[in-house]
Write a protein that binds this DNA or RNA. Structure first.
Lengths: 105, 105
DNA sequence: ATAATACTTAAGGACATGCTTAACTATCAG
DNA sequence: CTGATAGTTAAGCATGTCCTTAAGTATTAT
């Protein structure tokens, strides 16, 4: 996975509106208007957020008739999780090595 | 945990330079100049990234003499991880319920 | 056919971000 | 004391982000 994908992923999650959309979509699919509903924001704004989520790979959409349905793409969430997990693990390993070193001396 | 903290956290991680700094610091503490070393970037730029990491709670620093030493703050990493984990879990629960529903019918 | 619905496209504006260079301060080494 | 080192402060600039309104298209309902 290239770094710029992580850029997009974390950038997408760095906005409270978009995180709320992700939370909503984790409960099940929704149309654009349904996604808009909790926000005091114009529809174009919502669609722009949606575009950011799609480009991050977090959401997929498909249009049927005049309504667009949005779905979460949990693999993307997992990639972000994995990067964080990896860093934490490295950190804990480092701590363990330090602990061993202290015991030896 | 307030949302704007997650904003800062994810925003801080949305930049490849800053993620590289986090990766470096997960291996152990470093001075500002050591952090700068891999990058073709001015020192002020590095310090600005560092400030973003500090405000996100990802890094703490302390100055001794003329050198500033930077350390990772793994709790912040874990908070981001937790949010992601929670969303994934909700999603998986949702899937399970859906599976049960399909078996019933 | 008409009107309402569900988006979509385009343009623009206020503010944030990620850099730069230049000039500065504080500390340590010789 | 002098100079090198480590970092800081300030200003400025190009570009990106997040929103808006206005005007459009395509689909569905009456």
């Amino acid at each position: 996975m290239l770094n710029y994908q992580l850029d997009r992923l974390f950038h997408a999650l760095a906005d409270a509106t978009r995180r709320a959309m992700v939370e909503r979509l984790c409960q099940g699919p929704a149309t654009v208007s349904e996604l808009k509903e909790p926000f005091a924001m114009s529809l174009p704004a919502v669609v722009q957020h949606l575009k950011v989520l799609e480009e991050a790979g977090l959401v997929t959409t498909s249009k049927q008739g005049r309504t667009r349905t949005c779905q979460i793409e949990p693999r993307a969430l997992r990639e972000a999780e994995r990067w964080l997990q990896h860093q934490r693990t490295e950190w804990e390993r480092k701590l363990d090595r330090l602990g061993e070193l202290l015991e030896e001396t």
